[in-house]
Write a protein that binds this DNA or RNA. Structure first.
Length: 312
DNA sequence: AATTCTGACAACCGCTCTGTG
DNA sequence: ACACAGAGCGGTTGTCAGAAT
């Protein structure tokens, strides 16, 4: 493909995929001038590309030490998930914590992930509300079984399995807590809620100084992070009596019996993985990294509480 | 084998931010 | 204080290869 061509008052602007020759010109420019003066590339007649396009090409593709064709590792995924929960869709910022990754990489990763999750959840279409009595408690074993969800990969299958152990874990810790349902967490139209706290973060993102407080260390899971949930409008959703709809398939599938979903999620820190939360194949307690693939893992990711407004 | 679906990636667009005169 | 240009960012769309049907 030769790329689309668009005219402006100064001549043609080339768009579309870059050719090797163009890359070479761009690299030469950067070698001479550094990664700046992008507009001069065109004004000097070196390339028929906008400065913007040149910069993007350099940043996303030609810059040294980029990880091309390397899938995100579990650790990178975890980092993205946690940072996204902390600071929202600040891809460029998040990318600075992932050597060799660009903001575009992170953004694409997140977007793919969201699409995948949405698709998984869409297979969990809840039964019409009329089929159940919304006033009664959502005791899981009473819920009619749904079709086994169609999974697009064995990885997702594994993830759901991991979710089951995950859920079992905190269910064990919450026997006396009032039952709520969780459909919003799995509603494809409310995917932001999967990110437990994103919305608030986005409404009031950390300032630079706060960011420095939060990072560069990736926050560790903390038991009191659940308070964060309480601060969200999400809580409204959690208290919605229809909350379990989409969960039902999973619970039935994994025979969670009388389990109830707590209003307040218990700690998911390492200690809980040891105490009934599951132990990895090697005998080590399961950590968030053990849940590296796909959505179930971050469903319960703990996020560092944002500073209270008074601390801002 | 053909078609459809999906994920990964590349690139563009519009907007905002920042520096400069 | 203001206008302007360049740089940067985030959202979105298009393309393509591989997997699934």
């Amino acid at each position: 493909m030769d790329g689309k061509r668009v005219c402006d008052e100064r001549g043609e602007i080339k768009k579309g995929p870059w050719k090797a020759e163009e890359d070479e010109v761009l690299i030469n420019h950067v070698n001479k001038n550094g990664p700046r003066e992008w507009s001069s590339i065109r004004s000097k007649g070196l390339l028929q590309r906008t400065g913007k396009s040149c910069r993007l090409r350099w940043v996303n593709k030609l810059r040294p030490n980029l990880k091309h064709g390397v899938k995100f590792s579990a650790e990178e995924e975890r980092t993205v998930i946690e940072l996204q929960a902390q600071i929202g869709n600040k891809w460029a910022r998040i990318a600075t914590y992932l050597p060799g990754r660009t903001d575009n990489d992170v953004k694409n990763f997140w977007s793919s992930r969201q699409k995948r999750l949405a698709r998984i959840l869409q297979t969990q279409t809840p039964p019409p509300k009329s089929q159940k009595n919304s006033s009664e408690s959502h005791v899981l074993h009473d819920v009619p079984a749904l079709e086994t969800p169609k999974l697009s990969s064995s990885t997702e299958e594994e993830s759901l399995s991991k979710t089951q152990s995950c859920l079992s874990s905190y269910i064990d810790h919450s026997a006396t807590i009032r039952m709520v349902s969780l459909p919003e967490l799995f509603n494809p139209n409310s995917l932001h809620l999967l990110q437990l706290g994103f919305t608030t973060t986005e409404k009031k993102p950390c300032s630079d100084s706060q960011f420095q407080l939060c990072f560069p260390q990736i926050p560790q899971l903390q038991s009191d992070n659940l308070l964060f949930l309480e601060s969200q409008e999400l809580v409204g959703g959690l208290r919605d009596p229809d909350f379990l709809d989409v969960f039902e398939g999973h619970f039935n599938r994994y025979e969670l019996g009388d389990a109830q979903i707590p209003t307040v999620l218990p700690s998911f820190g390492p200690e809980n993985f040891q105490n009934g939360g599951g132990v990895g194949e090697n005998g080590n307690p399961l950590t968030p990294d053990s849940f590296s693939d796909d959505f179930p893992m971050d469903m319960f990711d703990q996020v560092e509480p944002l500073p209270s407004p008074s601390e801002w």
